[in-house]
Write a protein that binds this DNA or RNA. Sequence first.
DNA 1: GTTGATTGGGCTAGTCTCAGACCATTGATC
DNA 2: GATCAATGGTCTGAGACTAGCCCAATCAAC
Lengths: 241, 241
Amino acid sequence: MDESPRFMTVLRPVRAGNAFEETVERLLQAIKLGVVGRGDKLPPERELAARLGISRVTLREAIRALSDAGYLDVRRGRYGGAFVTYEPPSPGPGDLRQAVNEMGVAELSDVLTFRLAVECGAAQVLATTELTDEQRGVLLRRLSELEAAGLDDYRRLDTAFHLSIAELTGSSLLATTCADARLRIADLLNAIPMLQVNLEHSGGQHRAIVEAILAGDPDAARRAVAEHLEGTAALLRGFLT
Amino acid sequence: MDESPRFMTVLRPVRAGNAFEETVERLLQAIKLGVVGRGDKLPPERELAARLGISRVTLREAIRALSDAGYLDVRRGRYGGAFVTYEPPSPGPGDLRQAVNEMGVAELSDVLTFRLAVECGAAQVLATTELTDEQRGVLLRRLSELEAAGLDDYRRLDTAFHLSIAELTGSSLLATTCADARLRIADLLNAIPMLQVNLEHSGGQHRAIVEAILAGDPDAARRAVAEHLEGTAALLRGFLT
DNA sequence: GTTGATTGGGCTAGTCTCAGACCATTGATC
DNA sequence: GATCAATGGTCTGAGACTAGCCCAATCAAC
């Protein structure tokens, strides 16, 4: 690197791609993170275009691409719309190794570090906050939903649980950042086979995170999240060829 | 809020503005964060446009705007270029109140929470890492530079110190995010009068952060950063009318 | 002084993106 | 069966953005 890192950090590209590409990416996020699940309908084109700050033409190109790729089923007429048809594939044993190596060691390391930092940060902040009864309720509800989840709902509810922590801080910047981090490894997480023993292990860690936050202990919250994420991170790193 | 927060988080605008506006914003960041200081030259237009991923036409419009606004002095010919003329103004007593209230309570709270989370996260991650001698050297050098700083260099070196922590984690995503957080309150920080007593106080906190990181104690690192940032945050919140 | 490399200044043709209007289809309701 | 509201499908003209090219100014080196 012949430039200062700060130079590289600030004078980086202002746009990730063109509007069409970014829109496809964003919609794919919504689908893969489970914000809109199988069978759900996206908002009407006019409303969605306004939300995303793009023209209907561009949005329609993106929807068309996702429809062609088999993620969406578009129906016309009243009560029509773009319906999600995608369902995360059950991973085979070789899929994870392939997914990890497609990403590359540098990017994997970057993203795991990023995720660890922002999720620990969010948990710690939330543990520092005076929580209202409503906030406690949301957190406990997400936890119990996750614990009651079947295998096909687990990923979606796990995502919902993790993102709730960031959302409950009240900082939309932080929520956005955590969603972004989660998204960047969504494909890897989806490729991890879910074993009963792992789920039970994760369940304990989720409870520890909630307990630390409710107890107002930021150090414990930080440690619980770090331990939880390090398990996944070590697993992924182990699959680097 | 009649929508789920996750819906709002993911289905948000894909673009902050047009390419021109985003470019102006980015260059202003580089100037206000001190990445390019007074008298320094921006890279040649062709190179800078390539770095930012935009056309030269758009970049030139942005440079023109900043030149008109008095941030840059553009000179033609060999050894010419766009030279930074901006110097952060010495704040008067009313400036801070005005700056804080221009931002508004919701956004201020959002940004402060965001910054707290990501900077604590970065410090904690770095404290967990096995540091090389070179990394230790960079950290100690930034600290000593900051301690030796005069009043006119303090902001710039303070920024450099804080960003170094994120950069040393090796995650460019994290570095970018911390830079972004810092940027969002740059105007507020610049409006805080620098008193000798505050600087000494901050100096001690900076040392505590470095010591915790070098000692490999993530909890202590997290706590030190939180304490440091909470001081500033409380000050800013106090200026809300 | 002349030269030549480097840099900002400016032009053009083409593509991307947008706002807005209008058309086509669907299905619940009457 | 007719109606009508909601929704996707399509077109057009205008503006933003880009790539590539050439011009103009500057100044160190010769």
